[in-house]
Design a protein around this nucleic acid. Structure first.
Lengths: 157, 157
DNA sequence: TTTTTGGTTCTGAAAAAAAAGAACTAAAAG
DNA sequence: CTTTTAGTTCTTTTTTTTCAGAACCAAAAA
């Protein structure tokens, strides 16, 4: 039972982070593990520390961790002569994760275009609105990467 | 049984739209109703048309429609001397809906700031990354409305 | 007043998601 | 070899979500 020591405030924050991530569509265990790794002073935690601290079964923890690994929200490191994996948030590559989440935009654009192409020419207004949305999404898709670059420039100077 | 007439292609698209919205976190019935209203040539449909066309029970349709109304994805109009409500996508106000969806950003920023403030000063790198994310989100929150304005300007000229 | 219409609300069942527990496995340690 | 460790996988249980069916309700029509 190698629980991570957490004070009341930290525990409460983990729960709130958990709820926030649940609202973003993550399953409960996944959300809590994310919370724990955001709060823990030790940023690298072992499998055992994670499931004992959060009172999860090994199987629940294993599945949740693998979901997070596949989503590139987690990574793990190993230490020489130590069989354990040390899991940590993939926070140093958050830009990549952020970019991945934007990939839904082009997909949505193509779906909306297909919808638009299938619609009859009645309902001019509806079709015009649809076209506007498509236009704006394409604009966003082009401009957000630029925003990224501008932000980086601003930081350096 | 006042079903809306739909051809194969339209039906198939409604299903694909449904799946897309399910991936975005909407419940199945909610997702399909959204799809129907995106595809139907008549943009305003009655309660009966919706549930008969999609083979939903009245209760399922009622709940789903109310979820959509509360989320401001749907609105309804009425016609004089007609007790029915005619439901339609809130597409003419899509900018408002879009802006609403961005409201999670400031909330996330405040949560991340709280996390940052609670963390010990060990893990310099982790804390620095956290601060970067916060900074970028604040930047986004400031710049996206500007993007909106610039896009509108581009449209008019 | 009675009936019809256009929904809503309240069960309960079915299906899906989440988690627990235990059996299992591969690599390392003894 | 045998045992231990660090997880994984399989099965079962629990919980949650989603939906159907029927009863219900308020306003309008007859």
């Amino acid at each position: 039972m190698k629980k991570v020591v957490l004070n009341k405030k930290q525990q409460e924050l983990i729960e709130r982070i958990g709820i926030f991530f649940e609202h973003q569509g993550l399953p409960p265990a996944v959300a809590r593990i994310s919370g724990l790794l955001l709060i823990s002073d030790r940023v690298e935690l072992t499998f055992e520390e994670i499931y004992t601290t959060l009172n999860l079964s090994k199987s629940a923890a294993s599945n949740a961790i693998n979901i997070l690994l596949k989503a590139h929200r987690l990574e793990y490191i190993t230490k020489p002569g130590d069989r354990k994996r040390y899991f940590k948030l993939f926070i140093d590559h958050w830009e990549t994760v952020f970019n991945d989440r934007l990939k839904f935009l082009p997909f949505m654009v193509s779906l909306l275009k297909e919808i638009h192409s299938v619609r009859s020419s009645k309902n001019k207004e509806f079709n015009a609105n649809l076209k506007e949305i498509i236009g704006f999404m394409e604009y966003l898709n082009k401009e957000i990467p630029k925003l990224f670059i501008k932000w980086k420039e601003k930081k350096t100077k």
